[in-house]
């Protein structure tokens, strides 16, 4: 009898709390399937030694142009705690304002607390257009 009552109680508790726990976990929403974007600014508007933020689907990306004129693109999410990075003209680096993390123009973490390089995207040019692709 105790066993029946005890397991009924456990069953009752599970029946009440399981839906609640499932409820607070959000459904896996349809992730953005963007793999390639054409940036809204041409190469001519990205001078050497500069960088600009762009939207890559539902996330921010950053395009930089090195002194030699090469265009590179990375995820703009700092690998430390997810802040959005920016290009610092005065440092010539990618910088995170939240915890002073610094990345070079290859996306490598070179100073501050970020533990990993920025995720790199592939870049190709079509005339004056910049096309950024997530590496497969």
């Amino acid at each position: 009898m105790d066993w029946v009552l005890g397991s009924s109680l456990v069953g009752f508790v599970v029946a009440v709390f399981y839906p609640v726990v499932r409820y607070i976990f959000p459904p896996a929403s349809a992730e953005s399937v963007v793999n390639t974007v054409t940036l809204p600014f041409p190469v001519s508007e990205l001078p050497s030694g500069s960088g600009r933020i762009f939207r890559f689907g539902d996330r921010p990306g950053i395009a930089v142009r090195t002194a030699s004129g090469e265009v590179r693109a990375f995820s703009a999410r700092c690998t430390h705690l997810d802040c959005t990075v920016q290009f610092r003209d005065d440092l010539g680096l990618i910088w995170c304002a939240c915890h002073n993390g610094q990345f070079d123009l290859s996306g490598r973490n070179i100073a501050g607390p970020p533990p990993r390089p920025l995720d790199a995207y592939d870049v190709r040019l079509r005339g004056d257009q910049i096309i950024v692709t997530r590496p497969s």
């Binding site: 953005s32 974007v37 940036l39 762009f54 939207r55």
Partner: peptide
């Protein structure tokens, strides 16, 4: 904290592939 002038986010990129927004 060194400050810098950073403009607002760029406008929407033109999508090349299909896109679904959550």
């Amino acid at each position: 904290v060194p400050t810098t002038d950073v403009g607002p986010a760029e406008e929407t990129a033109e999508e090349v592939t299909s896109l679904e927004l959550a």
